[in-house]
């Protein structure tokens, strides 16, 4: 698996994501936001958490207009895999690769907490390592994680089995308790919780690890 982790000037989970990809056996390159292309042979693009451009304007809005994001949109358009976590999810909605928007948390404060997360579908390269309905313990850490979508969109996502994860106890007001969304071709996942923070037993939890392992398995089989 060749992974490319995008680095914006305000990314701060880029290293964490690279560590998790490497632990799953990936070859990882860090790609600067001013670059115009992805490394040759990139299987999956990782858009990490953080505050890409200080979260000024709107979270992810400036990042979505950076040179590398044009390449990411093309990569996704060609059927390439993309994982966006936290700020990465916000960037993916701002580019239009994923539908909906991430708004300020319902309680208006930043929340850093390990939450219960239900696997809503196992039909994707990201979630095939989990059991249907399995409840995971994964940390969240965000100010703007309130997934906002109208009823029609939520229904459409559910009908197409594109909701990847839902919160067991909705912490931020997200529509339909949605914590993670898949693209139509199921190859792009945006999620607010941080699986890379739950991928090492020394840090107290390993429920995120199966996501990276499953990806590696799919890439190896491809």
């Amino acid at each position: 698996m060749k992974a490319a982790v995008i680095v914006f000037p305000g990314s701060n989970c880029d290293r964490d994501m690279a560590v998790a990809f490497r632990a799953a056996g990936a070859e990882v390159s860090m790609v600067w936001h001013k670059d115009t292309g992805l490394p040759e042979g990139t299987d999956i693009v990782g858009i990490p958490g953080g505050f890409s451009f200080g979260d000024y304007l709107r979270c992810g809005a400036i990042a979505a207009r950076s040179p590398i994001c044009r390449a990411v949109v093309e990569h996704a358009g060609r059927g390439g895999y993309v994982l966006g976590v936290c700020n990465g999810f916000q960037v993916l909605t701002e580019t239009g690769i994923l539908p909906g928007a991430l708004m300020r948390n319902r309680g208006l404060t930043y929340i850093c907490r390990t939450v219960g997360l239900k696997v809503a579908t196992t039909d994707s390269a990201f979630t095939s390592g989990y059991a249907p309905g399995q409840e995971l313990r994964i940390p969240i850490a965000h100010h703007d994680g309130n997934y906002t979508a109208d009823d029609a969109l939520v229904a459409r996502l559910r009908d197409a089995d594109r909701v990847a994860f839902t919160y067991a106890d909705n912490p931020n007001g997200s529509a339909g308790d949605i914590a993670g969304v898949l693209s139509e071709n199921r190859r792009v996942l945006g999620m607010m919780p941080h699986p890379e923070r739950a991928a090492d037993p020394a840090l107290g939890g390993t429920d995120g690890r199966a996501l990276f392992d499953a990806l590696a398995g799919v890439m190896a089989a491809a």
Partner: peptide
Amino acid sequence: YEQYDTQVMADTVRVPGLGAGVIR
């Protein structure tokens, strides 16, 4: 403490709240 990111950098072994915090 929930308003602070306690786990960024993915090396936090003991989060704040009880006694000393620990990072790797």
